[in-house]
Amino acid sequence: MSAVHFDLERFRQAVDAGPVLVDFWAPWCVHCRRLDPVFQEIAGDYAGRLQAGQVNIDDLPQLAAEYHVNVIPTLVLFRDGRAEASLTAPESKARIEAFLREHL
């Protein structure tokens, strides 16, 4: 189970359907690449409880603006269609797990 690539439509559908963890990233962002393997593992570990998806902010700058993502990588947890909490540039998988324990 790996993370989905969101376009605008799939993003809207997903956040309406249940909890979603979104990784805002861009191809030129080196910290984003380092985060990717861990994000894919999180997608697998939390399958069934949480959908994990990625938004390329170069393709969807309107989403980055809408959710005030000024820095990437930023993970945003959506619940009931709303941005519930965010985490910028986590330095370990453990940090993301702690974030999800607190907010999910």
């Binding site: 080196v30 910290h31 690449r33 380092r34 985060l35 393997p37 861990v38 330095e91 998988k93």
Partner: peptide, 28 residues
């Protein structure tokens, strides 16, 4: 490993002084 393979070298897109890569290589 807490994040991903490569450590600090994964933060640079061009490594020109690791032998064996005459054109350089992306650190990640």
């Amino acid at each position: 490993e807490q994040l991903s393979a490569g450590g600090q070298i994964a933060l640079t897109t061009q490594v020109d002084n690791y032998p064996g890569f005459p054109e350089g290589i992306d650190g990640f």
